[in-house]
Amino acid sequence: MNTAYNFAFFDEGSKREIRRATLKAIAIPGYQVPFASREMPIGRGWGTGGLQLTLSLIGKNDVLKVIDQGSDESVNAVNIKKLVSDTTGVETTEETHDATLIQSRHRIPEVPLTKDQILILQVPIPEPLRYYEPSESETKKLHAEKEYSGAWLMLFEQIMKYGSMTTGADHPVLVHERYVMAPSPIPRFDNPKMDESEALILLGAGREKKVYAVPPYTKVVSLDFEDFPFEPESFEDKECRLCGSTGVFLDELVDEATDETVYQCNDTSYCLEKLNAVGVK
C-alpha cells in the first residue's frame, strides 16, 4: 500500500462532497445529482465517475472487483483496480460473489448480485436526452417537467428508419415511474437486471460531473411501445465455445483459421468459474 497518499486517494473533504451527493442520488432514484468531480490521476471519461464513487465508499474490509466490458483483465479495469488497491490496501478479486464493491464499465455481471454488494457503473454520457437536446439547462427543464416525448420520438425515428429500435447499448429506462435515465452503455441484455435489483446500483459520470442511483427493489422499465416491445439481444441456439453456457451475453468472434463465427461469454470471470466447475471441455 502506498502510504504517501491519503487512504482511498482523496482528502476527506472531497469524499464528503461525493458522499452527500450520493445520499441525495439514492433518495431521488434516477435523478442526476451534480457533484464537483475532482481531478484524478486518470483522464476524465476513463471511468473517473465510477472511480470517485468507489473511493468515497471503500473501507478497509471491502473486497473490490473491477470489470471493463465483462473482462477483469483489460487495461482500464487493471489500472483502476491497481490505483484503488495501492491507495487503500484492500483485497481485490475476480469472483463476483466474493466482492462487496463491483465497479464496472458497460456490463452488469452474469452472477446475480446480492444485498451485500454495491454495483458502481461508469457512465460516459449520463443525460439520456442529450442526443436531441445539447443544452444542459434545457434538459434539466425537460426532466423537471417530466417532458420525455423526445426520448420516445428518438426510438420512434429508429423504428421508422430501420424497422426496430437500434439502441445497441444505453437503451433509456424509466426509473420509479419518474425519471428517464441512461443506464450507462450496458447492452440491452442487462437492462432487466436493473429492475428490482437486490443490490444498490450507483452510477457516476466524472467528465459530466453527475452521480445517480437505482436503489434496490426499484422499478426500472426500458422505454418501448406497445407494438414494438423492448427486446434484449437474443442468443438463442448459441452457446459459449469455451464453457458451453447459454442464456448469457455472448461476444461474437470470427475464428480466423476457419473463418467460422464463434461465440464466447462476455463475462470472463463467469466463464472461468464455469470452466473450473466442470473441467475444460
Partner: peptide, 14 residues
C-alpha cells in the same frame, strides 16, 4: 467515518 457513511448508505438504500 467511512464505516458510518456506509451504514447510512445501507439504511437509506433500504
Amino acid at each position: 467515518l467511512q464505516s458510518v457513511y456506509r451504514k447510512i448508505v445501507d439504511a437509506s438504500a433500504r
